[in-house]
Simulated scan of single mutants.
Amino acid sequence: MEVLNLIIERNIKEKGGFNYHWGCDGLKISHVCFADDLMLFSQADECSVRILKESLEDFSGVSGLIPNLNKSTIYFGNVNNHLQHLIKGLLPFKVGVLPVRYLGIPLLSKRLYSKDCSVLIDKVRKKLNDWKNKFLSFDGRLQLIRHFNLYDIWCPLSPLCSFITVRDIHRPGLTTRSTVNEIVVNGGWSWPVEWQNKFPSLFNLNVPSLVDGKRDVLMWKSREEKHMPFCTSEVYKDLCVHRQSVQWAKVMWFSQSIPRHAFILWLAYQVRLLTQDRLDRWEVRSDLLCPFCQLQMDSHYHLFFECDYPSEVWDCLKGLGMLNDAPPNRKGCVDFLAKQHMGRSFRSIIQRLVLAAMFYFIWQERNLRLFQDKYRTVEELCKVIEKL
Score class of each variant (00 low, 15 high):
126 K>H: 08
93 F>E: 05
58 D>H: 06
125 R>Y: 08
60 S>K: 09
369 R>E: 01
59 F>H: 06
13 K>Q: 12
244 Q>E: 12
256 Q>Y: 12
281 R>S: 06
320 L>W: 14
46 E>I: 15
1 M>A: 13
384 V>K: 12
98 L>C: 04
163 F>S: 02
140 G>Y: 02
3 V>T: 05
245 S>R: 09
60 S>Q: 06
358 M>T: 02
35 A>M: 09
260 R>N: 11
3 V>R: 01
119 V>H: 02
323 L>D: 01
269 Y>I: 00
351 Q>D: 13
174 L>D: 10
275 T>V: 09
68 N>I: 09
149 N>K: 08
377 T>C: 10
276 Q>V: 00
101 R>H: 11
58 D>L: 09
33 C>Y: 11
7 I>P: 01
264 I>P: 06
349 I>N: 07
266 W>L: 02
234 E>S: 15
333 C>E: 00
240 C>Y: 02
271 V>P: 00
211 V>H: 02
101 R>A: 07
237 K>Y: 07
118 S>V: 00
52 L>P: 04
62 V>P: 03
273 L>V: 07
259 P>L: 15
148 F>R: 10
282 W>S: 12
268 A>I: 00
337 L>F: 03
354 V>D: 06
247 Q>T: 06
24 C>R: 04
216 D>A: 15
332 G>P: 08
28 K>A: 07
299 S>N: 01
152 D>W: 04
201 S>L: 07
353 L>W: 05
329 N>D: 15
364 Q>S: 07
324 N>D: 14
346 F>V: 10
26 G>I: 13
62 V>T: 15
